[in-house]
Design a protein around this nucleic acid. Structure first.
Length: 527
RNA sequence: GAAGGCAUAGCUCAGUCGGUAGAGCAACGGACUUUUAAUCCGUAGGUCCUGGGUUCGAGUCCCAGUGCCUUCACCA
């Protein structure tokens, strides 16, 4: 029997699974009814959220034709519609005429009556569809509907006898037939690979997926509004760079054919934004994609979205205030906060955030004063960090990353880093060993990074050179950029600069445990 | 890049000691005009990731490969 079925009769089409074949069959039937299965323009529809808000217009007519609005408890837990109808001696409902469009996400067939739940990007609502109400012609079409199809409906907004706000359909319009069946109706897609590969299916059917990305859009919008509201100007710098500067990361390499020139995709926005400050853009930012040719993890995607902001005549302290404001406003924009959920933890994001120095935190978590080199060496050895022939700051930095960062529940601004690991940062006036830099940590995750920007061209050149001398170029953040040094010779104002990882901020604000839940199309191997 | 785990129906998953494939949902046929993951009766649906091997016999054991997940490494 199985062999008979597998026998190809008319080519590949005979191989399709029965589920798919059933939808094809309905497609043909729809065409036979003279209806375009791919739909047409559908004007004047109401968003489902707006339709739901019109439930206050509904009136119940009693036996004396007196009109009663729905009680305040309608829709609430424990509300008994039948009981209320009996009390009021209810006879009939009057409700506003509405027109909706959406995807069929649930379907209950009760013979000559069907309940269809549709969803648009503002919410879901039930349709009450009766054969006698829509007429025999439309009923024929309704028999051809499947889960996942896009439909429109004209009808009246009213509750059912069991108290569910519904659109009582006069007519169903087919807007687009769906040929692939949707995933399991309650679990949706659970395989994370499939959710990313078939993002459209994930968005269409998985609870909260579309909402999360709409929230991302609101967060980004809010960041732009916060910055432009404070007089910052948004620019678009080049994505193709000749030198991968501004960060310590390996770039993606590419090539320009006509110029026969090697190019890299940018790994940071920094150096071009600073050039713009030389040119007189006193408050400038870019919100865009950067690319790093590195590993993939729950917190890393090879391309990610970065915000960098520069404010002439400010310093890293100005950037702390700005960071707090950006995060507060973003939180408000999606109606979150002041606490957000992160796994089983609650994080309070109320400003101001704690401000602690690197040295303080180092001492707090290791019991060793970072300026006590002998003590640091002992501690390093005790936890297996290499000491021999290494700069003290490099050893300290490694211990910090290993022992302190993960412990920073935050939010906390970690201030004043060892200067030798910060080649683009101004040193403290009274202590050239310390750089005016902070990183913002929340739940062990680095979310923001800011400097008082180094604007001394000679020191900048020297830092590029010394870093290059001691390090594998691929691992250094200080790749010599002669044009950048020339820019500084033309006078860059003292300034504060800030970088925020947008994907990580969205993770935090939406409670997403992995960066792949907040990036629409994360990098995947080919299928 | 390393180690471990996973890969079975359209989807979500079971599959015992190695004995020839199971459920729920979705689909198909039927009943039902106030259902809420509707219910009830019936039917159909499989390259058990790929390729080798062991065996009388492999979804199950072994080897290799591919993809995903987790941890680590890399990483402003």
């Amino acid at each position: 029997m199985a062999q008979e079925r597998a026998e190809p009769i008319g080519g590949e089409e005979e191989d399709v699974a029965a589920v798919l074949a059933a939808r094809r069959k309905k497609l043909e039937k729809i065409e036979a009814l003279g209806i375009d299965p791919w739909g047409q323009r559908f004007d004047d529809r109401d968003l489902i959220a707006a339709i739901r808000s019109r439930q206050s217009e509904i009136r119940l007519l009693d036996e004396q034709n007196e009109k009663h609005p729905l009680p305040k408890t309608f829709g609430a837990e424990g509300f008994d519609m039948r009981q209320w109808l009996a009390e009021k001696k209810g006879k009939d409902f009057e409700g506003p005429r509405v027109r909706a469009a959406g995807r069929i996400i649930l379907h209950r067939d009760k013979g000559k009556l069907q309940f269809i739940d549709i969803r648009d990007w503002t919410g879901r609502i039930q349709l009450f569809v009766g054969r006698d109400q829509v007429g025999p012609e439309n009923w024929e079409l309704i028999q051809c509907l499947d889960l996942g199809d896009l439909i429109g409906v004209d009808g009246t907004l009213r509750p059912t006898k069991t108290g569910e706000l519904s659109i009582f359909a006069d007519k169903i319009h087919l807007l687009t037939k769906t040929l692939d069946p949707p995933p399991a109706k309650h679990q949706g897609l659970t395989d994370p690979e499939l959710r990313q590969r078939l993002r459209y299916v994930d968005l269409a059917y998985n609870e909260g997926s579309l909402e999360r990305f709409l929230q991302r859009s609101k967060i980004v919008q809010s960041i732009r509004a916060t910055l432009t509201g404070q007089g910052f100007v948004e620019i678009e710098g080049p994505t193709l760079h000749t030198i991968a500067g501004g960060a310590a990361a390996r770039p993606f390499k590419t090539h320009h054919n006509a110029l026969d020139m090697p190019l890299v995709l940018r790994i940071a926005l920094e150096l071009h934004l600073k050039r713009l400050m030389v040119g007189g853009m006193e408050r400038v930012f870019e919100l865009g994609r950067v690319f790093r040719n590195e590993g993939i993890s729950p917190r890393h995607n090879p391309e990610f979205t970065m915000l960098e902001v520069y404010q002439a005549f400010g310093d890293y302290r100005s950037m702390m205030d700005l960071t707090e404001r950006i995060i507060q406003n973003a939180m408000l924009a999606i109606g979150a906060g002041p606490t957000v959920k992160w796994g089983d933890q609650e994080i309070n994001l109320s400003a101001p955030f704690a401000r602690k120095t690197y040295a303080e935190l180092f001492a707090e978590h290791t019991g060793v004063d970072p300026s006590d080199w002998a003590g640091v060496q002992d501690y390093a050895t005790s936890i297996g960090v290499e000491v021999a022939n290494r700069h003290p700051d490099v050893v300290i930095s490694e211990i910090f990353e290993e022992r302190v960062e993960d412990q920073l529940r935050g939010p906390v601004f970690v201030m004043d880093y060892p200067a030798s690991i910060c080649p683009l940062t101004k040193r403290k006036q009274d202590n050239p060993q310390v750089a005016e830099r902070f990183e913002l940590f929340i739940n062990g995750m680095e979310l923001a990074n800011a400097y008082t920007e180094l604007n001394d061209p000679d020191l900048q050149k020297q830092l590029f050179e010394t870093q290059l001398a001691g390090m594998d170029e691929a691992d250094s953040m200080a790749r010599m950029d002669h044009d950048f040094v020339r820019a500084l010779r033309n006078g860059m104002p003292p300034a504060g600069g800030l970088g925020i990882g947008i994907d990580r901020l969205v993770m935090l604000l939406t409670g997403s445990q992995t960066i792949r839940d907040v990036i629409l199309f994360p990098l995947l191997r080919p299928e």
